[in-house]
Design a binder for these strands. Structure first.
Lengths: 141, 141
DNA sequence: CTTGACCTTCCCGTGACTGGAAGCCCTATA
DNA sequence: TATAGGGCTTCCAGTCACGGGAAGGTCAAG
């Protein structure tokens, strides 16, 4: 198979496949004309990589997972450990984003969004964020 | 003020402050010896930037927000629009991460995590993800 | 023999910095 | 006065995971 074939079948752009070769994730053969020649096993790996990446695993995680994938003597515990570490990172990111979302939503909720210049969003960015709002109806400042 | 002072007071690394000057977010004065000389207004801007960045606004968003911050004739609606667009991006990212989390949690839940090589996580990455599990008790492969 | 699709390598750009090298400036102390 | 230290400067390279595009080789069809 040429690169376009495996690109179409794995769902990865040809550019990405070349990159994966460059960083040593795959090692396709070469035809006499210099073209990459992909085996079924290469296609399997690329599909694997495509899916692992879509779950947010880093390239280094993918390298590890791919090694485990190819190691018939692996322990599923090793795979699970990588996955759990990644789950933890995902949870962390979600928590960060939710904190941002809450703080920003709070500011947005306080902003009239009209033609006047008074803006609690800018005020919040100026003076230090959420502080549980409650600027008071009298609004100091 | 020298760069270290504004770094300490704004919470931004000196490197970042130099970078922000390079991309035109701030324009500190220069002393005779070539050192950057920061005014109070520069410090305000840096603090503003630090907070906006911590809410996840992109540098380009920050540029826009900073311009609005400095424009006394601004309409709060313009600020709110930027903030709402960012809120939408945050919500989108959270949704993506949650989808990853759900898919991965599903796989992890099915994995024994012991010394044996059989691993539903690797199987899931190989064959195409969630498919509501149910590999059948006979377990092909 | 030309067209057009495919393939190759190489280099630059992305976002938002971070690290480090090489070298100037300033203050304090011996 | 010499020196040690800390701070400041610029510039270059690296990060992560690619994507865009140039310049040029290859192949099958008409």
């Amino acid at each position: 198979m040429n690169i376009k074939d495996v690109a179409d079948r794995s769902g990865l752009p040809a550019k990405t496949i070349r990159y994966y070769e460059e960083i040593g994730l795959i090692r396709p053969l070469r035809a006499a004309n210099g073209y990459r020649s992909f085996r079924e096993s290469d296609l399997h790996k690329l599909t694997f990589l495509s899916r692992a990446r879509s779950l947010g695993f880093s390239i280094e995680d993918c390298r590890t997972l791919l090694a485990l994938y190819e190691d018939r003597a692996r322990a599923s515990a090793d795979v699970k450990a990588v996955a759990n570490a990644h789950l933890a990172r995902i949870a962390e990111k979600i928590a960060e984003l939710r904190a941002m979302e809450a703080a920003l939503r709070h500011l947005v909720g306080a902003c009239a969004g009209d033609a006047r210049p008074d803006c609690p969003i800018l005020a919040g960015l100026e003076t230090g964020l959420p502080q549980t709002g409650q600027t008071g109806s009298g609004g100091t400042r």
